[in-house]
Write a protein that binds this DNA or RNA. Structure first.
Length: 472
DNA sequence: CCTGGAGTTGTCCTA
DNA sequence: TTAGGACAACTCCAG
């Protein structure tokens, strides 16, 4: 006799608390089977290296939460689910929606296929507002953040209030894959090292949130600009993988006492930016690869592999840029301020296509997210609709002095500059010989000469942009 | 259809 | 030393 069960298909919702699909099933079924399917067949793009590491440990954690009852599978979800339906008496399959174009396409077809045999339901687990519900009065989507968020989101109905039901996960005897069969880890030293700063999993996300709301959120609106300060939540990987829902964060931050209004509002608007990125990806699915502003299709990018390599590994000779890129490589994360600095440097000073930066971030970030990553790169490059004016080019020396005034961030990630006096830390090429000699530091040997002249490359970026304007 | 105000995150020069 | 304006022009959005 087959066991009667309902299936919850875990995707970017690797949590138990405030999981709408799980809550729905728990109201209707006694035995819920939790399933994860590693789908390399339909995925576009493939998961990045850092994402695979995070996923591996997240699944391990989730499986423990389910007392070892998470069914781990690999392959085409259609086949995997068919297999489960043959083995069990499956009453219903449900999941929480994803918004990546390839997943929408896959799930749409799958739903049609499964609906012929079984009840299928999908829920909103990861967005405060469904992208198709926020539109202008004329029925078309917003393209500018501020009206999207203030007028669109904030005047729409309030986000779902987080809640949790008691879930009975089914103690199954199905022979599934082992986590190691997914081949997510290559057992590289790098994989272990980047995780040293992180504790993966739902309970840890809750703990980090609590600690951030107790301390870090105070002065968030200002402090978030300084990479060395503890004023950012570092929750982005957990939010991306659904280990904490934006709904939980939204209502928690709203309920805080003794926190300034501005800090609460700015934190909420950051959640709003995440919404906006998904919104753009939903309405403009080509966002990941193609310029939103099509006139940029004629822009004269430079194809400079050597400079790209130096940038990616953090050897540009510009300290704040290298610090950011090395933080990324070493920790699977980069603070928001250096993200802007390094991307402006790649796109404007080096004139390398934002696609290259987007791909590198995709590979290296724990929070690599198709929506936020591409929307942000387009913003920096000025190719998005809601974009920075092209003349707004970050000066990495000025930015360093302003946002890392004591040089702690630079010295942490670029230790070869440790002894350089603060006056020259942001531009070591200006350090006089007698000082360099004193500390036994030699530019070109201990640390590279800058790969590009900042002033000249700024001018070059501006004139390349002017060229584009004349063409159009 | 027309109009006017606004658009996450900056830099540089000048007075 | 510091504050203010220039830096582009265009599209978006709401009234």
């Amino acid at each position: 006799m087959k066991k009667k069960i309902a299936i919850h298909w875990f995707r970017y919702d690797l949590r138990i608390y405030d999981n709408p699909s799980l809550n729905h099933l728990s109201n209707n079924y006694d035995n819920i089977l939790g399933v994860y399917i590693f789908d390399e067949i339909n995925s576009d793009p493939k998961l990045g290296s850092a994402s695979m590491v995070w996923l591996n440990h997240s699944l391990e954690y989730l499986n423990k939460q389910l007392n070892g009852n998470l069914v781990i599978l690999k392959g085409d979800p259609k086949k995997c689910l068919d297999e489960l339906m043959n083995f069990f008496d499956v009453q219903e399959i449900s999941w929480n929606r994803c918004y990546e174009p390839w997943i929408i396409k896959r799930d749409k077809n799958l739903k049609i296929y499964l609906n012929k045999k079984i009840q299928v339901n999908s829920f909103n687990g990861s967005l405060l507002w469904e992208p198709w519900k926020i539109l202008k009065n004329d029925g078309t989507p917003y393209k500018i953040f501020t009206p999207f968020f203030k007028r669109g989101c904030l005047s729409a109905s309030k986000p779902r209030v987080p809640k949790s039901e008691r879930i009975n996960f089914f103690n199954h005897n199905f022979l599934a894959k082992n986590l190691s069969d997914l081949g997510l880890l290559e057992n590289k030293k790098w994989e272990r090292k980047i995780l040293t700063d992180w504790r993966v999993g739902e309970k840890n996300a809750i703990e980090i949130m609590k600690s951030f709301f107790k301390n870090g959120v105070k002065d968030y609106s200002e402090g978030r600009n300084f990479p060395i300060k503890k004023n950012v939540s570092r929750l982005s990987p957990y939010i991306h993988w659904g280990q904490i829902s934006p709904h939980t964060l939204w209502y928690e931050v709203n309920s805080l006492k003794n926190v300034k209004h501005i800090d609460v509002e700015v934190f909420k608007s950051e959640l709003g930016w995440r919404e906006f990125a998904y919104y753009l990806l939903y309405h403009f699915p080509y966002l990941q690869k193609k310029n939103l502003k099509s006139n940029f299709d004629n822009f004269q990018w430079l194809d400079d592999e050597s400079n790209f390599k130096k940038w990616s590994k953090g050897f540009t000779g510009i300290p704040i840029v290298d610090a950011g890129m090395r933080e990324l490589w070493q920790t699977g994360y980069m603070h928001n301020r250096p993200r802007m600095i390094v991307s402006s440097f790649l796109v404007k000073n080096l004139l390398i296509h934002w696609n290259r930066g987007e791909e590198w971030f995709w590979d290296c970030l724990f929070d690599a997210d198709a929506a936020s990553n591409s929307a942000s790169w387009q913003w920096v490059a000025g190719t998005g609709t809601d974009s920075t004016p092209y003349f707004r080019i970050f000066n990495p020396v000025t930015q360093g002095k302003k946002f890392d005034p004591n040089g702690e961030y630079i010295r942490k990630y670029v230790p070869e500059l440790k002894k350089i006096p603060i006056k020259f830390l942001f531009s070591p090429w200006e350090c006089p010989d007698d000082i360099s000699n004193n500390i036994n530091f030699k530019l070109g040997k201990d640390y590279p000469y800058p790969i590009i002249d900042l002033k000249e490359s700024r001018q070059r970026a501006l004139s390349t942009y002017n060229l584009l304007r004349q063409k159009n």
